Simulated assay, not measured.
Amino acid sequence: MNPTRRSVLAGLATLAVMPAVAACGSDQPGSATPSTPAPEGAEEGAFPVTIAHKFGETTLETAPERVVCVGLTDQDTLLALGIVPVGVSYWFGEKSKRGIYSWAEEAFGDAEPPTLLMNTNGVEIEQVAALQPDLIIGQYAGLTEKEYELLSKIAPTVAQSGDYADYGTPWDEAALTIGTAVGRPAATQKLIDGVKERIVAEAKAHPEFAGQTAAVVTPYEGLFIYGPEDPRSRLLVELGFDLPPIITDATDSEFGISLSAERTSDLAAVGAVVWLDLDADKQVRTVFEGTTAHEQGRWFDITNADGDYYVAHSFVTPLSIPYVLDRYVPQLAAAADGDPATEVPSADEAARG
């Protein structure tokens, strides 16, 4: 069974946010209408520019000053370029952070926090219009054609790529599209190149990853295994791992596949199993505890207790990737070393080196 990406992402967000809602308190930002700092200026020759996407093409004549992100992670690239959006779409994590997490705080500075759009059941069209954007961007997104048409009546809208499944555009292509839309393609490419150099360096430092399989999985209506077009799976591949046949041999599995809880035993042969919220389903946990992957320590679990790391692992953006690698690579190395005695470090321990 292969559910839609929007339904899975919404379902996982609900699981993730429940503990975080209680943590939101007096640090909730004010409700003043946000404004974005004036852009430093577009690169020479950046406009006009026409960008192709799933629903056609969008032409931008000048550099936008009020950007609304209807993609779930698009704000990171904008922040890295010095642009604070006036609206961002909530996915999961602490709502009080308004989509600005620790890995992006330096880039954000002391700007006015953006308005948080609750797009779980579709884009809040009226709220987007109220922000008076001159660009609406949705790259890590699953905009429908109707949503695109409505948004396009508000402002130029750049939807997700039509070359991939929804929520499946590679992080570098999504970032470059965002950078092109705001007139800074060269700066964005430089940003992308720097992050890719870091990923390549990590892969070279861990040649043991090559030839091993790894997968990101979560208990969701049984067991959900993320597919080859999911950003989390792509990062594993960029680090040198292969995805296991259980997902690569499946049909219509670009985003991932759902299996019954009993099928958790199929993970026994996976080299490194990256769990998200393993304890969310007792049956899945019990079955996995009986596998050789569990017995040999070839796994670790990332949960809401890991704070921003939990969110960053799913964001997969130019800003979040370096933050993740500091924690993720030591965990992967410990899980994939073949020695049951090796204890996988916590995210905090990994970050401290």
Rank of each mutant, 00 (worst) to 15 (best):
A215I: 11
Y220N: 08
Y220P: 04
E221A: 12
G222P: 06
G222C: 11
L223K: 03
F224K: 00
F224P: 00
I225N: 10
Y226A: 09
G227T: 10
E229T: 13
R232A: 08
L235G: 07
L236D: 05
L236V: 04
L236Y: 07
V237M: 01
E238N: 10
E238P: 06
F241K: 01
F241N: 03
F241S: 02
L243T: 03
P245C: 10
I246H: 02
I247D: 04
I247G: 00
I247C: 03
T248P: 00
D249N: 14
D249R: 08
A250S: 07
A250D: 10
T251H: 01
T251M: 03
T251L: 15
D252K: 13
S253T: 03
S253P: 02
S253D: 07
E254I: 03
E254A: 05
F255V: 02
G256M: 05
A261F: 10
E262L: 05
E262Q: 04
T264V: 02
T264L: 00
T264W: 02
D266I: 06
V273M: 03
V274C: 06
D277C: 09
L278H: 06
A280H: 11
A280V: 05
K282Q: 00
Q283I: 07
Q283P: 06
V284D: 00
R285V: 04
V287N: 02
E289H: 14
G290D: 12
T291W: 07
T292H: 10
E295S: 12
Q296W: 10
W299E: 10
F300G: 06
F300K: 05
F300D: 04
I302S: 12
T303A: 12
N304R: 11
A305P: 06
A305Q: 11
D306V: 14
D306M: 15
D306W: 13
D308M: 08
H313M: 14
H313Q: 13
S314W: 13
V316E: 09
V316F: 13
T317A: 09
T317I: 04
T317L: 10
P318N: 09
P318V: 02
S320W: 00
I321D: 00
Y323G: 00
D326T: 01
D326A: 00
D326E: 07
R327T: 04
Y328W: 15
V329Y: 12
P330C: 01
Q331C: 09
A333F: 08
A333V: 12
A336P: 08
G338A: 10
G338T: 09
P340A: 12
A341Q: 15
T342E: 10
E343K: 15
E343V: 15
P345Q: 09
S346D: 10
S346K: 04
